[in-house]
Design a protein around this nucleic acid. Structure first.
Lengths: 176, 176
DNA sequence: ACTAGACATGTACCGTATGACATGTCAGTA
DNA sequence: TACTGACATGTCATACGGTACATGTCTAGT
């Protein structure tokens, strides 16, 4: 159910095409809820048939720009306020961490360094965006708040990785 | 693919039944990779047919205790070292946060307080475990390291929620 | 003797998600 | 003119995941 509300929410803020939405999912949205175009396009057609979104413009190459209808925005509101949140998350990096004991210390450290590097790059990217991006729409202002969550999470992930590296006998303190 | 390696990894550390594994997923494992018994039992049968796990004991009520074979452990090692990690995670709570702008400030604050409360309870639970649980197997020692990741993440989530609450005009500093 | 609850395993259906296949347009450049 | 790459939308087969259905056993308490 989450994908449809993600689309509906994005289309409540700005009108966009499936292509634009796909790019959104490749960037910001994909960090918390991944989706490919093969899932997005059919869902948009469903949403359109159900009257939750409507086509506001057509462009070159069959481009169709959608926006949420009043019903669509109401559906998001209902989801946010009435449907209980699924709190548990799905994280392969953390799942893998459960099994580091099956690796040699050096292999485990390699994994933890990769882990740290990945989050460090996220963090750098987030800070970059914070510097050069000025949110305009209401949705973008809220995205700015979520971006900050990414910063907090990334910092925590890096701090944990450093702590874990010590547990696995690491001597150095940072990498690339 | 992740579920099979989760099962294989757990069964590399200790022999367990599907029922035991299901309980594991309801607790620690489920925090990072949820799975129900309806998914676990068929996967165990597949793993068994493929020779990656074997039955080591049978108990009352048709209980079957499995453990990973040498091939099974090798498969986990291969996964950990050769298969690229899927870094992106799936988090409905964060997805919802993107759309807080569609709520009234009071509704948004309610959500953020629920968010904070949930992670606070996680954190309390983790600290409880840290106090009373002494890891014994290698797998449990590694789980202890992952538990610490949960602590770091929960603390970051709470800190962010407090920051976000300020953005949404909250005056108070804590709740239940 | 009965009963409730934990133990224990399984299947079936339906919706979600992925990767591959498929097709075509438009703009810029060589 | 030819080519490349971004733009743009779609489908299909398969696999993954969740809810509900289905069945039966064992233990402890009443």
């Amino acid at each position: 159910m989450s994908l449809r509300f993600a689309l509906l929410g994005l289309l409540s803020d700005q009108s966009m095409s499936g292509y634009d939405l796909t790019k959104r999912f490749e960037q910001s949205m994909g960090n918390v809820w991944p989706a490919r175009h093969s899932q997005i396009y059919p869902e948009l057609n469903k949403l359109n048939k159900e009257g939750l979104i409507e086509i506001v413009a057509e462009g070159p190459r069959g481009r169709k720009e959608y926006r949420a209808t009043e019903d669509g925005r109401a559906a998001v509101h209902h989801w946010l306020t009435e449907i209980p949140t699924e709190w548990s998350i799905r994280s392969e990096p953390m799942l893998r961490s459960f099994f580091l004991w099956m690796l040699s210390p050096e292999e485990a450290r390699t994994y933890l360094r990769d882990y740290r590097t990945w989050f460090q790059q996220r963090l750098d990217g987030y800070n970059e965006i914070k510097q050069y991006w000025t949110p305009e729409t209401e949705g973008e202002k809220a995205s700015r708040v979520v971006l900050e969550a990414g910063v907090y999470q990334a910092e925590a992930a890096i701090a944990w990785a450093n702590w874990a590296l010590e547990q696995y006998g690491d001597t150095r303190d940072s990498d690339a």
